[in-house]
Write a protein that binds this DNA or RNA. Structure first.
Lengths: 339, 339
DNA sequence: CTGTTAGCGCCTTCAA
DNA sequence: TTGAAGGCGCTAACAG
């Protein structure tokens, strides 16, 4: 079980262990024959570089820490997959950590990742007060916030997010142009800056257009199918005069669909439903939710690119905010009506 | 950005850095006042232990590697969460790696985790040939297979799995006792040992009871809603005389439900549906799938306990197989019929 | 092209 | 109860 080291290989090959190191890293000039011979011995002996030792002396780990609120939620797991793919392309491993603000979990994770000397950290969060924490740690390690924050002016952080305000606006405009005049905004989560922005864009556009909107807040701490179901149930039970709903997240929309099914409300015939996120389930043959795609791959790329820049230029002396535009994806859950 | 080290603290405290190390680890005897003073300085200075250095010299990382086939699938992400919770209780961090057999991904992940000197590794897999790989690496690092394997006799590996044969048997018996005499077995995945065992138990019981079963194989490499939908669509299109179906996985059952809905087949009135896994979606108000619960928490606990034992006794000279019994969870997707 | 010499930051004997 | 010395496995100058 004891691991074989570079020294063992050196002895076997009859060279100094520096030479072995060079062969392994293919760095600087080295006789290609000795190199081949050394690598062959490594293979035979089952040598594996001790990454801890390498990182300790090289001051690089090639590790990116990723803190995600809830990996069991489709949106986040898909986001993770996008980030990982792109990180691997760039030669980085990602260390996934599952955690939400509250009870000091985020701090623990930051401490853990910094302890492991992650080259950079990505924090995925939509919590309003996350950036205090964030700011604190970004002094120690290159960090990108993937989510949203109150404002760049008051928060010197590097951030990537979908343009939530624009998304909200697009949603309102789309429903309006379909002919809807009274709509529901379902699943706004008051504690979340993302939701606030999304809602802000929506009502601004609604006001301009003359669209009546009623808001149903989600008191929970996450947008889940279950909560969407409960919210919709309440609406369907009480009765409603709206002809369409914008769900603040696809998961909410799924819940609404379930409830509608139960109440015999046909989508889109009697009721149009527009989502936000484009999680993979939304494409399912029997769902076919029209939604605003978050462009997870572009978010992933933008985040990694920004992080890499931070890693390479720790003192770049500027803060960057990159906004990704959502894209409307028309499927079958919305229909035209005559106003 | 440069990290403060144990030596810096030592200088500030006016002690040797050995003493600082002791204060930090709270190991051996140390004056409680100096200890308090040192810790206070550490806090003030924002000292963070370099975990790489610690692990390098202590030969322990307190890291468990977890290789999971598809973190975006609910079953696996829920399994991961269970394992992580339990690992944290035991003082271990888990390093999650997403990867399936094929194109050498698993090897890469093992190499990566071993390179990081993970104290132990959990491989979640249902692929028939995974244990060759598995066996190879288990010589180097304590490893537990969470899944299933051909037989313990021919494969000296440590393994935890749900009792798939029993689960299959329970499924057949349950449907039989409800009065069903002709049933579908949907979503068997030929390449997967898990599925073969599950199916084996099912048909054995069916034969004994006089239950007619027709199998619909899933040619894909994973049990997804989409594949369940396609499988069911094919069945509903061709016509069927069965009164119930056992879905080899809950995700398959979800797809069947969608398709049934589309074809106007009412569940459970016209058609009973039994799942396997108990993913969280199965409990949703409009799903309420009757299913066999995999006891993920017990699997997680058994796996971690076994792994810990391996870590502590590397030469324990035995291989263990722990089988967890599934539990029938009756909800609303199956009903009694008169045979 | 190759070897020598220092560390990286920490833990762990062994003395004091 | 504390300190000094050595080493974990590797990389990184600097010579040769």
């Amino acid at each position: 079980m004891a691991h074989i080291t570079i020294k063992d290989i050196a002895r076997l090959a009859g060279v100094s262990y520096t030479t072995v190191s060079r062969a392994l890293n293919n760095t600087s000039e080295i006789n290609s024959e000795t190199r081949a011979r050394i690598l062959e011995i490594c293979r035979q002996e089952g040598y594996r570089t001790n990454l801890l030792a390498r990182s300790l002396s090289s001051h690089r780990t090639n590790l990116i820490g990723l803190i995600i609120p809830d990996i069991a939620s489709p949106f986040f797991s898909e986001l993770y997959l996008n980030i990982e793919t792109y990180a691997l392309d760039l030669g980085y491993q990602v260390m996934l950590c599952n955690g939400q603000p509250g009870d000091g979990k985020i701090e623990e994770l930051f401490e853990f990742l910094i302890g492991h000397r992650a080259d950079g950290i990505i924090l995925v969060s939509s919590i309003n007060n996350a950036h205090d924490l964030f700011y604190k740690y970004s002094q120690t390690v290159p960090t990108v916030l993937l989510g949203d924050c109150v404002s760049l002016e008051s928060n010197p952080v590097n951030i990537v997010s979908v343009d939530n305000a624009l998304g909200g606006r697009m949603a309102a405009e789309y429903l309006y142009h379909l002919g809807h005049r009274k709509v529901l905004y379902m699943g706004r989560r008051p504690g979340s800056i993302i939701h606030e922005r999304r809602y802000g864009g929506f009502v601004d556009a609604a006001r301009e257009l003359g669209l009546r909107v009623r808001v149903i807040d989600n008191p929970g701490s996450a947008s889940t199918i279950e909560s969407g179901y409960q919210l919709a149930k309440q609406v369907f039970l009480e009765g409603f005069e709206e002809t369409a709903a914008f769900a603040a997240a696809d998961a909410i929309a799924m819940g609404i669909m379930q409830s509608a099914d139960e109440f015999g409300v046909s989508i889109p015939d009697q009721f149009s439903l527009l989502g936000f996120d484009n999680i993979s389930y939304s494409a399912l043959p029997n769902i076919r939710l029209t939604t605003l795609d978050q462009q997870k791959n572009r978010q992933a790329k933008a985040t990694m690119d920004l992080l890499l820049d931070l890693i390479r230029h720790p003192d770049r002396g500027e803060y960057t905010r990159r906004l990704i535009c959502p894209v409307l994806l028309e499927r079958s859950s919305c229909r035209k009506v005559s106003p």
